[in-house]
Nucleic acid binder design. Sequence first.
DNA 1: TGCGTACGCGTTGTATCTATGATGTGCGCA
DNA 2: TGCGCACATCATAGATACAACGCGTACGCA
Lengths: 216, 216
Amino acid sequence: MRPPVKQPPAADRVYAHVKEGVLERRYEGGALLTEGELADAVGVSRTPVREALLRLEAEGLIKLYPKKGALVLPVSAQEIADVVETRQLVEEHAARKAVPASPQLLARLEELLERQKEQAAAGDLAGAAVTDRCFHAEIVRSGGNEILSRLYDQLRDRQLRMGVAVMHAHPDRITKTLVEHEQILRALRSGDAEAVVGLIHGHVSWFSNLARGEVR
Amino acid sequence: MRPPVKQPPAADRVYAHVKEGVLERRYEGGALLTEGELADAVGVSRTPVREALLRLEAEGLIKLYPKKGALVLPVSAQEIADVVETRQLVEEHAARKAVPASPQLLARLEELLERQKEQAAAGDLAGAAVTDRCFHAEIVRSGGNEILSRLYDQLRDRQLRMGVAVMHAHPDRITKTLVEHEQILRALRSGDAEAVVGLIHGHVSWFSNLARGEVR
DNA sequence: TGCGTACGCGTTGTATCTATGATGTGCGCA
DNA sequence: TGCGCACATCATAGATACAACGCGTACGCA
């Protein structure tokens, strides 16, 4: 008799389902989800669904309207601007704090960059995106501020959602990303805080212009 | 027959109840709340209690342990440092952006300062604290970044919780606060961004030293 | 024909009930 | 006396049932 595979909690399953749906645009911005639908879709009751929706609202992906449903927030120009501005603020702050960089941090970043190169070479776009994300998160995490780290993770989620379309339209971007990461790493190693900040500023803001055009 | 007063939703009542309890230290840090207790205390069923606890966890006031209960997070030195650092980051950023200050912003800040003075003179400590909070929030809100505004509100909640004890131990602090607010306002009006930032930096960090001593 | 009202459906909000897992305690055995 | 196992207790996790509310629609009346 096989030991019964322990499913992750129902609430987490719903959470993952909805988040994926929203991030991958399977649920369009502006769509109105109802608890019943989701419950059926995932195969659980409405109780865990409510939990998941609550968490997602706290993250800013959806907005709950009483007695109406969960609105998948459409990405607005305002949101893009806010996300980019906040990312810059948090990440540049962390970078300043990270100089001079510890050997551990440098090693970890190097490893991540290496991995991303391999993934890019292998055409694994999704994997490269994940690694890219880790690269930046690692810098922020090195600041040791839990509040900022959590915030940053949420920002990356939201940006991911805006970025899917843009990314596909600019496949060469991955190369630029790699180069820029190398520059950042080099600047970190040399201990030039302002250079790091400048590079990150440019690196983060690259698509704010592009994205702006996409959403009008 | 009076039209029955419409109660706010049960979930909101629980949320407010717990939040108050935690912020005012009626629920001590380290205490383990159970859904059943809270449900009885507020007079609702456990379902809305869960909702409230979820929201509070997202705000970082409590931590939910599966099958155990809701732990009221004790304020740690780490948390104090994180909150202060993040407040400085957000508020200084907003201040830089706010220069040169719009007449509307200046007017609003003046009004708030005036009100706080009156409250302080009348001995209305709680009211003055609320107004103080609005003063800072107004500056951040003027930046027009919703993400940062929301974050900032949460930070003020958490700081409020740490600050109660400290505040009572230093009743003269209110006077200093007023003076500093006036300085900030003056600097804003003169358009000297760096002066504003410097003042805010000092103003926000004033108690990080004090608080550190209190929690060991 | 135009407006106002009443009804019906769909959705969330809340309560209650059951299942399951965690924890501490006490008994039995070595 | 010390260790280990079984059980009682209590918490959450989830499902289900019910109530309340909002909104659109259709009907009736002027």
